[in-house]
Every structure is written in C-alpha cells, then in structure tokens.
C-alpha cells in the first residue's frame, strides 16, 4: 500500500489514480458546511482565511468530543457532495485537495484537473478508526460552531482511496 506524507509534491499528486488505496499522514484542516460559508464571507470581504490554503488539505468532518487521553473522539468523513458549491473556488486558490466521502460534481472534477489536486475518499462510518489515527488536534477558527469549527489535525496513516484524481478519473464512474 502506498504511504503518503502531506504536503504532496506535484509529482506525487500526478502519480495517484482513482481507486488506489493509500495511507496518508500529516496536517489536515477540518471544515463542514457552516465553516465553508464563513470562508466565503471572508474571501468576499477581502480578508484572509484562517489557515494557509496553498497545498493544504481539507477534511470534511466534525469530530465527537475527545475522551480522556485522546486528541479527539470519533471522526470519520461527512458527505462531500454538500461542499460541491465551495470546492472549486478553494482549489483555484491553491487548496491541495480534500478528504470526504461519496461522489463530487463535474465542476469539482474540472477544478481538480485544472489545479492538479486530488480528492480522497475516507471510509464513511469508520469514525473510531479515523479518530484513533488523529494524534493532535487544535482549534483554528469559529469555536461557536462546536463540532463544525475548523480544527488542525496531525494524522497518522489515514486509510483512504483516491476518489477523483488530477487526470479527471473518478472511482465513482460506472
């Protein structure tokens, strides 16, 4: 199995093909619906995003509270399709890619190829597995959103499948 460490080089991104299983480690930022809405409000107002977007990876997820001795509680992916309306603009600003679950739109597919980025599918429902693989968690922005706030995670060996690659292929094509 291919092991990857974030950030990914362009060469690494181009070596990934839809359907490949990988183990991913490094820094991720969480964002769900409400956080994305606020990113767009900041961008529209000419303000900076709360994280450096160049090469960053977003994890579409909202964690359970951390039990004693853990960085975070269960934290699997949420449905990525709800972020179809947000992903292309963030990719055009340099976002390295996203992690979520389920198919994304044709607009996202185009944005991934144009910007040489990749969308990974995490296994939906494997919340305890992913939560246990998150070694550090830090609140970055929007604490009022609770589980929907933006967190910075340090993750180790996230089991993922390349869902949509930088060449325009998708594991969901049937």
């Amino acid at each position: 199995m291919k092991r990857l460490m974030l950030p990914l080089s362009e060469q690494e991104v181009l070596s990934l093909h839809a359907g490949d299983p990988v183990l991913l480690s490094g820094t991720l930022y969480t964002a769900r619906d409400c956080a994305h809405k606020r990113f767009f409000e900041l961008l529209d107002a000419g303000m900076p995003l709360p994280f450096p977007i160049k090469g960053a990876f977003l994890y579409y997820a909202g964690p359970c509270p951390a039990p004693a001795g853990k960085a975070v509680g269960s934290c699997g992916p949420t449905t990525s399709a709800r972020m179809n309306v947000f992903a292309p603009r963030l990719l055009s600003l340099g976002l390295g890619g996203m992690i979520g679950k389920g198919e994304m739109s044709e607009e996202v597919r185009r944005a991934l190829t144009e910007n040489r980025a990749v969308y990974f599918a995490a296994i939906g429902g494997a919340g305890a597995f992913y939560g246990n693989s998150i070694k550090k968690s830090e609140l970055v922005a929007f604490p009022d959103l609770l589980s929907e706030a933006v967190y910075r995670f340090e993750v180790e060996d996230f089991p993922l499948v390349v869902a949509m690659d930088a060449h325009g292929a998708s594991v969901y094509d049937r």
Binding site: P63, K70, G125, A126, A128, N132
Partner: peptide, 11 residues
Amino acid sequence: IAIREAMPVCQ
C-alpha cells in the same frame, strides 16, 4: 476499535 477504545462507531 470503537469497542476497545469506548468510542462511537461513527462520529
């Protein structure tokens, strides 16, 4: 893992 670590199966 969920049972061993007493964590929710899904978040």
